[in-house]
Amino acid sequence: MSDVVLTLNHLQKHFGALQATRDVSLELKRGEIHALIGPNGAGKSTLIGQIAGNLKPDAGSVHLAGQEITALSVAQRARLGLGRSFQVSSLAEPLSVLRNVMIAVQALQGHSFRFWKPVHRDESLLAPAREALERMQLSHRADTPVSELSHGERRQVEVACALALKPRALLLDEPMAGLGPEGTAHLTDLLETLKQEVPILLIEHDMDAVFRLADRISVLVAGSVIARGDSAEIRHNPDVREAYLGD
């Protein structure tokens, strides 16, 4: 298998007269964090929608581990190994942290039409879920309802849910949004150790985190990628500075 895990090929998406995605191509390779940045309205959410399966592109294709997934549903993509977190965290609030992660383990095992065995003492579900929580340093919160968690902890639960899927690629949509400096630093550390195992496509506003974490950065402006390179290249790219960094 090649080194490329996730590929976007010449994606196009229109909403009426607005071209939200213009010929975007992108590759996510094994062992890397590829950051996607861009000012508000650049079309990041539209692009994420097309990768995750909420939106269908007008043209172009999406491949995961060599398989075309352009026409697949959100659930089908997840089953093929695309884990994601949301900009606004999307968890079942009344349920405990462990329960939220367990549903991902259950999905991975592919047996949701089992009606008899109680999940609360099913070690084949509990053990991997606890392991994913351990990875995100959340074990002490396993039995807490999500509604009682802090914003930062919810972010970690989201990543734990995605991890429990044993994904081939992670799509993280602004995981640092709304976190304080401490939370950001904590999550940055966690993601840095994670990337060896799962390549991450990181959509993020926090520039410090992006420059620290990303191996490569793609800059999206008005629907197209205007620059691509490592942190130093992007930092010193005049187009990017003008369009995005604002000086």
């Binding site: 959100v74 659930a75 997840a78 999307s90 549903i103 849910c161 899927l165």
Partner: peptide
């Protein structure tokens, strides 16, 4: 959304 993201329709 959480269920679908986990891979269960």
């Amino acid at each position: 959304t959480r269920l679908a993201t986990a891979g269960v329709s």
